[in-house]
Design a binder for these strands. Structure first.
Lengths: 268, 268
DNA sequence: GAACTGGGAG
DNA sequence: CTCCCAGTTC
């Protein structure tokens, strides 16, 4: 029994529905996790998802900013819409579903971007980002014989040297500063999470999931970053059968600046 | 020697260039007069017009609001960019050109809309509209054996009963109030202008050139108004060979709320 | 660069 | 409903 999960920062789900439809028809994943839906719950385009066969929908949105959504072909049970840093700003959603006889707990995260200045003393947005990641230490990769955990999302941090186009030039750029990358990796390990996108890829190989809108020619200059992640509990590693970054989606008409990442699992 | 002139409130020339191209390819008029170009002169899409064969361009635009432009297949000479009510807000442009041995002076106008409240004491926009129309009394249909005048544009007034979908319901609505329609007709007569769109059409017949964006189904409810006009000096009347309102343009993709009006002349 | 907001205008 | 703007965010 195999299944696939996608994470995709969509940068406005309503504006991007044509691209979402194209993607779902092409890749037909079992579960799609979206971030930056920028959509109040009552305006979420649920009908369009249902028509595409994604009848099970969990949303945590608000007006204008942030917002996450998880849609699935088969039933999902809403578990939690968690507030972080005592702010209700629609950055987390977890659901549970059954796959191959296992109960999977799936977290969908949108971590704060953190502003421009990487100094928590003068930039409250950076402070918020660090606090948010610290609070994520409490989110653990729970698992036993009958259960497992997955965590996906736009985590807005590129932890490894080759998760950015130039380690040196980005050391002082928010998303790749030492305080972020160190806290991030510590948090991941504290939760006993496995970074599936790096599991079978040498650390010297570049991996990107995001290219800035500002770059003229994103494709040739290729100044990307790996900001989107797929993590799982240890007991899912044997079932993990690979993943795909849909780089071509960055070249679609009116694209998101993030591309979808598809992870596949094979459960006995 | 025949020629055709078009007036069209385009509601942002840059946003609407695909429609302008479609129209010019279909109708191939000699002269196109646009209003509400909403485009500073240095950003006017002159190149696109030239590529379509409209190499002679006169523009009077500004950032954000209003703006008029006259483009032509054959040479036009810029005559005046006139200020009204001592405000420079890009509402007029006149050019001269030769046709059938006559020198034609062509005025292109965008008259102020006038706001919602039809009371000049409490609504300065309505005051401005009335003042503007009063000042247009000085614009005369100059002509002699070798010359003639044409005045076109979005004049934002529907002067006759059947220039609106309901005379009675619009008597207190800006664009069809008695003070506007009376001053408007007096001004037209003072300038010795001929209302060509009504010349050969009974006054009981409805004529519209504009349908609000706000109406859900503009086509079936058909609550239009005749806000766009084509006037000429008396000596052009024998040459006037008819006109066409491109109603279908209101149904195009992302349309203007005004449609093009094409007038044709046959000069000896 | 490309979303969002909210206000002004039509 | 559909443009404009200026301001904000990513």
């Amino acid at each position: 029994m195999s299944f696939s999960i996608v994470t995709w920062n969509i940068n406005s789900v309503r504006l991007r529905m044509p691209l979402v439809e194209k993607f779902l028809l092409e890749k037909a994943p079992d579960v799609l996790c979206l971030q930056e839906t920028k959509c109040p719950d009552d305006l979420f385009p649920a009908k369009a998802f249902r028509k595409l066969g994604y009848e099970h929908i969990a949303i945590h949105g608000q007006k204008g900013y942030h917002g996450v959504a998880t849609v699935a072909r088969r039933p999902i049970e809403m578990v939690e819409k968690r507030r972080f840093c005592e702010i209700e700003d629609s950055r987390h959603l977890s659901v549970r579903f059954e796959a191959g006889g296992k109960q999977i707990l799936l977290h969908n995260f949108y971590v704060p971007a953190g502003g421009d200045e990487p100094d928590p003393e003068i930039n409250p947005k950076f402070r918020h980002k660090l606090d948010f990641v610290a609070e994520m230490n409490a989110v653990r990769a729970d698992h036993d014989e009958g259960s497992a955990s997955i965590l996906v999302g736009d985590l807005n941090i590129a932890p490894l040297e080759h998760d950015v186009w130039s380690h040196k030039q980005l050391l002082k750029v928010v998303s790749h500063t030492p305080v972020e990358t160190e806290n991030f990796e510590a948090m991941r390990k504290a939760g006993d999470w496995v970074d599936l996108m790096r599991l079978n890829v040498p650390h010297e190989q570049k991996i990107y999931t995001w290219w800035s809108y500002r770059a003229k020619d994103w494709e040739t200059s290729d100044r990307g970053r790996r900001l989107d992640h797929i993590w799982s509990s240890q007991n899912l590693v044997p079932s993990f059968s690979g993943y795909e970054i849909l780089r071509e989606a960055r070249g679609w008409d009116r694209p998101s600046d993030h591309v979808p990442v598809v992870a596949r699992f094979d459960l006995g």
